[in-house]
Structures are given as C-alpha cells and as structure tokens.
Design a protein around this nucleic acid. Structure first.
Lengths: 171, 171
DNA sequence: TATTATTGTGGGTAGAAATGGGGGATTATC
DNA sequence: GATAATCCCCCATTTCTACCCACAATAATA
C-alpha cells in the first residue's frame, strides 16, 4: 500500500495476478441453512475466490438435482459460450433458457453467507443441511439426502468406464 | 473510494472489470401488472442496464408467445442486422416487418415500471401476472400459463441433445 | 493450558424494492 | 375549443433484504 492508503499500480497488479488466487475448489463441507435461507460459504472457497470477482458467485441449477456455484469470472465464460448459440433455433433457445433462467448473482455478506432463492432450494430439495462439493472451477451444492440417493444409484456404475476416464486424464 | 481519497481495492477491481455494467440478465422473477398496464422491472435488471441506455428498453414480440425486452443499445445491434437483410426478398421483408412492427421504446418511470401496449399484452396473453426470464443480453416476458404450456410441450425434448449442448459449452 | 483469532450461526434494523393510487400536463378526438 | 384519454411524476404503504452486531464453537498460537 502507498503511505496514505492509496494503492500503487504495482501493488494492484501483483494483487490481481497473485498466485494465491488460482487455488481451485476441492473438498467437501457440510453446513446448515438458516431461517432466512442463508448458507455459509466454506472459508476455503472464499479464500480461493479471486478478488476480481468481488465476492460474487453465480448460483444456478445443475444436473441431478444439485445446484452449481460459479465464480463470476467462470460464469462469464459459460455465458460467452451460450451467447454464441442462435436465438433463432428453438432448441438453442430452450437450452439457454433452461440454464440462465435460474442463474442468480449472489454476493456473500460480511459473515461469508449467500442467500438462496426459493426456487433453487425447492429444485435441490434443500431443507436444513447442505453439502458443498468442490469441483475445481465450480462448486456443487447438495441436499445430503439427495446426494446419498444419487450416490447409491450410481454405485453400480460400470467401473471400467471409470478406469477409462481415469486413464484418459492421466489420473 | 477510501475515506482519504485513495482507491479501495474493490473500487479498482470494479473499475478494471468495467464496473457492474457488464452484468447480464439472468434469473426469473414474477410480478403483477396493475390497472394502468404497468409492470415493475426487476431491480436486478435495472441495475444491470448501462447508463447510456437512459432507462430505456425496446419491447417487442418474441417467439413462443412471449415478449422480448432489449436494452436500447442491444436493440440497435438487432436493427443493424435486420438492415442487412435484402428488402428484395419477400421472406426477408416479412421477417423484418414481423419483428419491427411491434417494437416500442419504453422508458421506466421513477418507480421502475414500464407500460405495456395493449397489442402486446394481447399477443402474449398477459392478464394479471407476469414472469420475467433473463436471457443474458435480453429479457423474456411471459404470461405464467403460457410459459407452463410451453414447458410441458418441451418436456419431451431429446435429452441427448441437451447433454451434447451442455458438453459443448463446458457447463 | 491459557489466550487470541477465525469461523459458523442467529437475529434486529434501516433502507430499498414492489405495488397502489392521485393528479397535473400533454395529446388525441370530436 | 371542449372533452376525453393517456402519460408522467409524485406520494404512501407494505414487504423484503443487505448490512450490522452478537455470540458460541472451533482452530490456532504462545
């Protein structure tokens, strides 16, 4: 910082490009939702969020009854792609609508919480507890019961597929 | 700005990201129309509107019995495109006419409301309630019943297409 | 172990947002 | 020119939400 509280250009550049902020989202965390539909975002995720994002995520519907939380800049990539789809084609319109329709900009408060719209808690069957799962560039939010349901359903997934994929990515 | 004239980090970040005016239209909101045919524009959309637009949108017919609301500057892009179509071709003329003919400039009042012409409420079957759906660069306005009708009709859309599209855009 | 910082959860409150309605100015219609 | 219709600005009320403070639980540190 400059001596009078102003920011030097070097400082800002370093801050913005600094590598602590390339940290990805990993791990699993469990939290509770309060009466005002607020949930805490795991501190690790908050710390991993680049400052350009200005404490904002985009929350939307994912597949399999979970919610997806994108850092603002990651979401803008998605949007960019979506905007390339033609609004003349019925199929494309429907697709864009189904994704964007539930997307909400959420900025966490000074306590680190975001508010979840009713439509999304309903979609994900969220009532009391919530599980965060880091997915590298984005975050999944599950109701614990839904997650379990999904897991047991997928337990007998062909483990060869799994191995194939693992090989593909050099895991 | 900081209290002593220095720049806060948030301010700098916002400035670098071109402030909050790159924010797009997302999410879904429900409002009611009043006796004077006025509807509130969701505060989030108003905030996302660039100041150059001077509180004005262009309202017109969309596909699927919904209305479309373009920020003025986005509409100008559309007009630009339309003007490239040949006026020699009958098909083009019809297309241009069908879009432009119902386009109305609307400026929201100090309460944040716009007024909807009768011809458009009639087209979209709007009577009492209204659903706004953000579509990134534009906004759709639906009558709830029409929307539902449309949704149930599209429920049996090929879900493979859906997954393909989702894969394409890395969602 | 004692002490301090951080994190997660609860709740109150000022200000913003949503909605309804009045009334003057402008425009349209006869 | 008189009347009606419409638009635009203002005010009022209720609902909602962003922001604030508080505090317990946990983690970190001396």
């Amino acid at each position: 910082m400059g001596r009078n509280g102003g920011l030097s250009l070097n400082f800002v550049c370093n801050y913005l490009m600094n590598s602590n902020f390339n940290i990805s989202f990993t791990g699993e965390y469990r939290y509770t939702i309060d009466q005002k539909n607020r949930i805490n975002i795991p501190a690790k995720y908050r710390k991993a969020l680049k400052p350009v994002n200005d404490r904002t995520f985009v929350l939307t519907q994912g597949f399999d009854n979970c919610l997806l939380l994108y850092p603002l800049d990651e979401w803008q990539v998605v949007e960019q792609q979506l905007s390339l789809l033609s609004s003349m084609k019925q199929k494309h319109r429907t697709f864009v609508r189904s994704i964007v329709r539930f997307a909400t900009y959420v900025q966490f408060d000074s306590q680190g919480r975001i508010q979840i719209p009713d439509s999304l808690t309903k979609y994900a069957n969220i009532s009391k507890d919530v599980v965060f799962i880091g997915m590298i560039k984005k975050i999944e939010i599950w109701d614990p019961a839904e997650l379990k349901k999904y897991e047991t359903a997928k337990l007998n997934i062909d483990s060869e597929d799994f191995e194939d994929l693992a090989n593909d990515i050099n895991f």
